[in-house]
Structures are given as C-alpha cells and as structure tokens.
Amino acid sequence: MADADAELFAGIRTAAERFDPPPADLADRAIAAIAVADISREYAMLTLIENAEAPVRSRGDGETTTLQFSDGAASILLHVSRTERGRRRVDGWVDPAAVEVQLTQGERTRTAAPDDQGRFAFDDVAPGLTHVRLVAGGEQKDLLTPHFEV
C-alpha cells in the first residue's frame, strides 16, 4: 500500500472514530446475539414430564416418559415406552411442516418421515443417550434436541 493510501485510510479512521464511534457495548451485543442464535439452533428447551400421575402400562410392565422440546418456532413431543424385551419404542409428534425426523444414538442415525398430522415412530430403540433432529422444510431452521436418556 502506498504512503498516500495509508494516510487517507488513517484520516478516514480518525474521522469515523470522532464523528461516528461504535457503541461501547457493540462487541458484547454482537457476541451475545451470535451465542443466542447458536443456542437456539443447537439446543432446545427441554421439558421433562416423567411419570405424570401414575405410570402408564404399555406392552407389559414398562414405564413411559414424555419429553417435549421447543425452540420457539418448532416443537416436538416424544413418548418413550419400554417394550417387553427391554428396548424402547419412541412415538412422536412434530409440527406438520417437518420433512424428516432423525434419531441418533452414537454413530447410528435412524430416520422417519412424519405423516400429515406430524406423527412418527421408532421401534426397537436401544436404551441409552439419544438426540433427535427435526429437519424442517422451507426457511425454518432445524431443531436439534440436547442428549437425553431413553
């Protein structure tokens, strides 16, 4: 860069700092906005309703758990029940705009397409840490749940 250019840029920088300085908290606000956007994309609010009233019996002596995740724009309701073999069945309901639901445990990902009412199910799910991704259509962002135990 030539000396004349450096002087010109220095003058512009000085004028901008004097007549139009950035707000003092601009960097903090930008970092907070980016963090909130990332959190809402990667993590959803978890509401755990475990054994509301009495355990519901399904396919034997299994207990059921209901989980609800939402990021304010999309939501997913999961009903996890234990099968006679000690495995899990996951029934779910999502916003009808969802294109696909992905259930991931470790390296294994299973997919299901919700029907017109937003219902889907996964049979024969192994107990363990799980997370679900709701793949949205259009301009809506995907919803990724935090890990939870099934």
Rank of each mutant, 00 (worst) to 15 (best):
Q105D: 09
R108L: 15
T104I: 10
E107M: 07
L78V: 13
R87N: 09
E139L: 11
R85D: 10
G11L: 08
R88Q: 08
T14F: 04
A136D: 01
I12H: 02
T130S: 13
E53D: 14
L8T: 14
P96C: 01
E107G: 04
V36T: 13
S58T: 11
P114A: 07
N51G: 14
A126E: 15
A10W: 01
E107Y: 03
A35Q: 11
I39L: 13
T109W: 00
R59V: 11
P114Y: 02
I34F: 06
L103S: 09
G138Q: 02
S81F: 02
G11N: 12
V132P: 12
L8W: 01
H131N: 14
E50M: 07
A97L: 04
R89V: 15
Q68N: 05
D91R: 10
D20W: 01
V94A: 13
A37Y: 01
E50S: 14
E149C: 04
A30Q: 10
V101R: 01
A54R: 05
A30L: 15
G72I: 09
W93R: 15
D20K: 03
A136Q: 13
I34P: 00
A37D: 06
A6H: 02
V132N: 07
V80A: 10
P21M: 07
I34H: 04
R89A: 06
R57Q: 12
V132W: 01
A97R: 06
V132S: 10
V101N: 03
E17M: 12
F122M: 09
A27K: 03
